[in-house]
């Protein structure tokens, strides 16, 4: 056993050494040191435009097509009183680029089953539908007004729950900043000319980590450049490959001093969890009843499901 262990350890060490050698051979062949490599990356990043950075961020983190999440939403008022809601969130990105998402409340009991669907169509048009169990099975088209308006009593907006639509914004890159040894890209996003989407803020400042292109913070500012809202993302961890996700998102409203904390309790990347029929208006009431059963979620995942840590 002892000899066998020695052989196993030696094999691992050799494999690791070989791997490093393979990785470093081209670099070393070119006569580049590790420090020089780091400098090169810095130079590359310095050359990136705001749009490049945003695209890279979206590509890495936001475009996985099927996501199911079990969330806890804690709403904190200006006197630190809490309201807790639990909800399920389903999102799909269709092949045509349409984005569909649904949030469904499961707690408190009185609002359990209430659901909101929002869809961003390929042409950028938005629609929403609402389902309230006490009103019957028919969903109602819901017009919520401005994109960044407070959603169902929280400080989150529809916009906060959707991937960035880069067509709607013009980005400017600002000087990078370093905070707690983490280097961030700083982007200013202004609504694009001709955008039909109405917003109450004037601009957004995005702080994107340079190491993984993950959006860590978004500041919303009004015409007077006053900070009106801040979204921060916490418990960031690498899901798989280059994709990172935050398990906690906090939105702080500086106008009313309210906060909303969204905690992701469970996340599954799987088309099975987010079937297309879920967003079918004709089947809405029926589907809602199906998905509202808690045991559906606790069933063993299908083979196509990807849990955090797996490669999508």
């Amino acid at each position: 056993m002892h000899a066998a262990l020695k052989i196993w350890v030696a094999t691992i060490l050799i494999t690791m050494l070989m791997s490093v050698s393979v990785e470093l051979t081209p670099v070393m062949a070119a006569g580049v040191t590790l420090k020089q490599m780091s400098d090169k990356h810095s130079q590359q990043r310095a050359k990136l435009s705001a749009t490049d950075i945003m695209q890279e961020s979206l590509k890495r983190h936001e475009l996985y097509p099927y996501v199911y999440e079990e969330q806890t939403l804690v709403m904190v008022d200006d006197q630190q009183r809490h309201d807790v809601r639990r909800l399920y969130r389903y999102s799909r990105i269709e092949p045509d680029g349409a984005f569909k998402a649904m949030i469904k409340f499961v707690y408190p009991e009185l609002i359990a089953g209430s659901a909101l669907i929002f869809i961003r169509h390929p042409d950028g048009k938005r629609t929403s539908q609402l389902y309230l169990p006490s009103l019957g099975i028919e969903p109602i088209d819901y017009v919520g007004g401005v994109e960044d308006g407070q959603l169902l009593g929280s400080e989150f907006s529809v916009e906060d729950l959707m991937p960035e639509d880069m067509r709607e914004f013009v980005y400017h890159r600002e000087k990078d900043i370093v905070d707690a040894d983490v280097v961030y890209f700083v982007l200013q996003a202004f609504p694009a000319d001709g955008s039909h989407i109405r917003r109450t803020y004037e601009s957004r400042k995005l702080l994107i980590r340079q190491d993984n292109f993950f959006v860590a913070q978004i500041d919303y500012r009004d015409k007077q450049n006053h900070l009106i809202k801040r979204q921060t993302r916490h418990d960031i961890h690498q899901v798989s490959g280059q994709m990172w996700r935050a398990d906690m998102v906090i939105v702080e409203n500086y106008l009313n001093h309210y906060r909303s904390i969204l905690k992701i309790d469970r996340r599954v990347y799987s088309s099975d969890y987010v079937p297309e029929s879920m967003f079918d208006v004709a089947q809405f009431g029926v589907v809602k009843r199906q998905v509202s059963e808690p045991q559906d979620i606790s069933q063993p995942e299908s083979a196509s499901a990807m849990h955090e840590g797996e490669t999508p």
Partner: peptide, 16 residues
Amino acid sequence: NDKGMVAQLLLFMHRQ
């Protein structure tokens, strides 16, 4: 006339 209805309608009001 229903408590559930009250709670669900209140979803459309902000705590503020």
